[in-house]
C-alpha cells in the first residue's frame, strides 16, 4: 500500500543480532553469580576468593555436614518458620481473594492496597514497625514473632495467585454448581477448591521460598534467634571457613529453586 513499505510486517520475524547479544548478556548477568557460588563451594582456599580457585575439593560438603553443628538449628528454624508462615498466608490470602472476587463492596480498593503494602513498602519498614510494636507491648522475641513478620508479606503472594485464578474461573461455574443443586459448601468442595488447587500450591511454594530466605524483616523480629539467612549474614560479617558458607548457599539455592520451579510450572500449565 505504501511504496516504501511493501510488507506490513512490523518487525522481522527473527530477532536482530544486537538484541540477541543483549539478551544473552542479561541472562549471563542473572545466572553467572549462581555459577560462581557453586564454583567456590569446591575451592581449596579457606580465607580468600581467589579466581580461578587454586584447587578443587569436595571436602567442604563433608565439613558442613559433620563438623559444623551450628548450621542445623538455624536450618530447622527456617524450615519451621517457613512452613507455619506459609500455612497462615495460605488461609489469609485465600480468604481475602474470595472476598474480593465475589462481591464489590465499599473499601474493596483499600483492602487490595493494604494487601500489597507489605511488599510495596521497603522490608525494613515492616521490620522495624513490628519490632517497635513488640517492644511497646513488652513481647519477647520468639518463634511466633518471626512467623508474624513472614506471614504478613507472604499473604500477598498467595492472594495474587488465588485471585488471578478466581478471575479466570469466572462466576458462571460457581453459579452452574448452585443451579445444579449444590449448596455453597458443596460448591466450595467440588468446584472452587479443585479450580484454585494448583494456584494454592503455587502460591504456597512461592511463599515458602520467600520466607525461607528472608533476612531483612527477620533481623528485626528474631531477637537472639538465628534463622539460616541470619546465619549466612553472620558468616559474611565474621567469616569462618568461607567455603562452608558457600556450601550452605548452594543448599539454599537448591532448596528454593525447586519449589519456585514447580510453582512456575503449575502457574504456566494452568495459564494455557
Amino acid at each position: 500500500m505504501f511504496s516504501r513499505n511493501k510488507s506490513p510486517q512490523p518487525f522481522a520475524s527473527r530477532a536482530p543480532l544486537g538484541l540477541k547479544i543483549l539478551v544473552g548478556f542479561v541472562l549471563l548477568f542473572l545466572y553467572c553469580p549462581f555459577g560462581i557460588i557453586l564454583l567456590y563451594a569446591f575451592t581449596t582456599e579457606e580465607t580468600a576468593f581467589t579466581f580461578p580457585p587454586p584447587g578443587l575439593t569436595l571436602d567442604w560438603f563433608r565439613v558442613a555436614l559433620f563438623e559444623r553443628p551450628d548450621i542445623f538449628p538455624p536450618l530447622l528454624l527456617s524450615i519451621q518458620v517457613a512452613l507455619v508462615a506459609t500455612a497462615i498466608a495460605l488461609v489469609l490470602g485465600s480468604l481475602i481473594a474470595f472476598a474480593i472476587s465475589r462481591t464489590r463492596f465499599f473499601g474493596r480498593e483499600a483492602i487490595t492496597f493494604l494487601v500489597l503494602l507489605p511488599i510495596a513498602l521497603p522490608g525494613i519498614i515492616t521490620g522495624i514497625s513490628l519490632r517497635s510494636a513488640f517492644g511497646l507491648l513488652g513481647l519477647d522475641f520468639t518463634f511466633w514473632t518471626i512467623v508474624i513478620g513472614h506471614a504478613t508479606f507472604c499473604i500477598v503472594v498467595v492472594y495474587n495467585n488465588v485471585i488471578a485464578r478466581l478471575r479466570r474461573t469466572g462466576k458462571s461455574q460457581m453459579e452452574a454448581s448452585a443451579d445444579l443443586g449444590a449448596h455453597s459448601f458443596q460448591t466450595f468442595r467440588y468446584i472452587l477448591l479443585p479450580a484454585i488447587g494448583t494456584a494454592l500450591l503455587a502460591g504456597g511454594m512461592l511463599a515458602f521460598a520467600l520466607s525461607f530466605d528472608e533476612v531483612i524483616v527477620t533481623t528485626f523480629t528474631a531477637g537472639q534467634q538465628t534463622t539460616l539467612p541470619i546465619w549466612i549474614l553472620n558468616q559474611l560479617v565474621r567469616p569462618r571457613q568461607r567455603p562452608v558458607t558457600n556450601v550452605v548457599a548452594v543448599f539454599v539455592i537448591a532448596l528454593t529453586f525447586i519449589p519456585i520451579f514447580i510453582a512456575q510450572r503449575l502457574m504456566q500449565d494452568t495459564n494455557e
Binding site: G170, S172, Q173, E175, A176, D179, L180, I191, A195
Partner: peptide, 12 residues
Amino acid sequence: NTVFQDYALFPH
C-alpha cells in the same frame, strides 16, 4: 436449571 451462555462446564 440453567444452560449458561458460556456453558460453564467444569473443566476438571
